[in-house]
Design a protein around this nucleic acid. Sequence first.
DNA 1: TACGCGTGGAA
DNA 2: TTTCCAAGCGT
Length: 293
Amino acid sequence: MPSLLADEISVWFRAEARDLPWRHPETTPWGVMVSEFMLQQTPVARVEPIWTDWMARWPMPSALAAAPRADVLRAWGKLGYPRRAIRLHDAAAAIASEYGDQVPSDVETLEALPGVGSYTARAVAAFGHGLRAAVVDTNVRRVVARAVHGAGDAGPARTRADLADVDALLPNSDAEAAVASAGLMELGAVVCTARAPRCGLCPVSARCTWVAAGRPEYTGPRKPVQGFAGTDRQVRGKLLDVLRGSPHPVPRTALDAVWSDAGQRDRCLDSLLVDGLAEQTDDGRFALPTGPA
DNA sequence: TACGCGTGGAA
DNA sequence: TTTCCAAGCGT
């Protein structure tokens, strides 16, 4: 079922898309997959330089798989959520050993890889392999909520229904659907934004049911804002920053300095060990993990 | 389903 | 200054 909405978004996208390095034609499915991991909950501007260095250093999954964990975590730098780097490392090893160093194109196969959920699997299929796959992220959910449902924002996820909504918009052909998917995301990222949508620049404002309704304010439940100051997340970040910054294992006293609450500090250090983000040496000091595995 | 998981820039 | 995030995933 052809959708004028998707067609017009595709026309707009081909003219207005940002020039992002992972969108260049020579980018491999692996490059797209790396970008999708890095972009999970992280702004484009911070991902760009890290992605560029990463792809120059590890241009295929087997190259990353062969790298020591510590190198991977240092290259990840301060992108945040460093467990993503662990999962990407593990996913690269699985692709190298089980799939001949070729990133799978099948959504179910992709979803079985570490760190690859519904969104990332479909994004790799669509943007890496040019296939028709409904890509549902926060931007797409917002665009559909407004343009199709006339709501100010998307509200809580309705996983199956969200997927069906987007699938219904996509053109039939793989190539056209992939462009439409990229366009939906781009529109949500740069025009149909959460706080100050630029409807004057929107290619589909004339068919937007939210605009037609006078842009009513969103009244549904808001997702609670995550605190950060004083959380384990902050403490883990501080501990890991010390380990990243030291070429040698550090004594426990070096970690004591980053957080005064000893109980919380110890709990966080333990959780880093459990997550594979840190290791304790035989002499009792702490460091980023060694080994490719 | 709700929650925990990093970081630093913009309003 | 404080708030609010920004292309989610795993449990």
